[in-house]
Simulated scan of single mutants.
Amino acid sequence: MNRTHRLFQLMQTLRRLPAPVTAQALVDETGVSLRTIYRDIDALRGLGAVIDGETGFGYTLIEDATLPPLAFGDDELEALVLGLREVAVIGDPALAKAAQSALAKLKARLPARQTHRLQHAVLDARRFSRPPEPRIDVKALRAATWDEATVEFQYEDGKGDRSQRQVDPLSIVFMQNAHMLMAWCHLRQDFRAFRLDRMWDLRLTGANFRPRRVPLLREYMEILKADALARAKDRATEG
């Protein structure tokens, strides 16, 4: 790891972890020695970062000179905090970590009054049971979706039946209590939703379906909307 990347990682850690952050906690997060942590703290201070604290007491990032302040309305800030906290709770591991990092960056760029508001926001996202852990690399699936790359995987449905699927991934949606892949299924020649915790052995096929993702997703959403309206109408008729 070069020095620039190491300093960046150290700054990110100071933003993310609850203050004061001990030198040992920084060692555990970054994987460098205590001596390197002390040198890098001094280097960051020399670059303009205001870091309070010293050896034995922990460090607190007071002001990050590399980031200009951001201006948000109070309601905008509450919305951002709520959204990021929700992602931290329900997102896949990579997204949950990214949400925590984004909150730390946001805190570093806010004026002092709004930093306090972020830390003590009245809105929060809590869930007493986390969604099932995905059995695939969700980051790779997101990349394939953006790239409009056809993927294949093994799948086990709710009845325990297993099959190999090849699909065009359209979107990943948190639905009810699980993450779902919305896709066009080559096997069924129809739209299908797959639970990520029931997928494994994800692979790229080398094929792509560009530029069809957006129109396919729009068509799928219209079908789901029509189906939901029909069910609601049926319930109203039965009532």
Rank of each mutant, 00 (worst) to 15 (best):
R6D: 07
L7A: 03
L17H: 02
T22H: 02
Q24K: 06
E29A: 15
T30P: 08
V32S: 11
L34E: 14
R39M: 02
R45A: 02
G46V: 09
G53L: 03
G56H: 01
I62C: 10
A65E: 02
L67D: 13
A71E: 12
A71Q: 15
E76V: 02
L77I: 00
V87W: 00
I90R: 15
I90M: 13
P93L: 11
A94C: 09
L95H: 14
K97E: 13
A102F: 11
L103C: 08
L103R: 07
P111R: 10
A112H: 11
T115R: 15
H116W: 07
H116N: 15
Q119S: 10
A121I: 02
F128Y: 12
R130M: 14
P134K: 00
I136V: 01
D137W: 00
K139E: 05
L141G: 04
W146A: 14
V151R: 04
V151E: 04
Y155N: 13
Q164K: 12
V167F: 05
P169F: 02
P169Q: 00
I172K: 07
H179L: 14
M180P: 10
M180E: 09
W184G: 08
W184A: 08
H186V: 10
F191T: 01
D197M: 03
M199E: 03
W200N: 13
R203N: 04
L204T: 06
A207I: 09
R212D: 14
R212V: 04
V214C: 14
V214N: 13
P215T: 02
L216A: 09
R218M: 11
M221W: 07
M221P: 05
A230H: 09
A230P: 08
A232G: 09
A236T: 08
T237F: 13
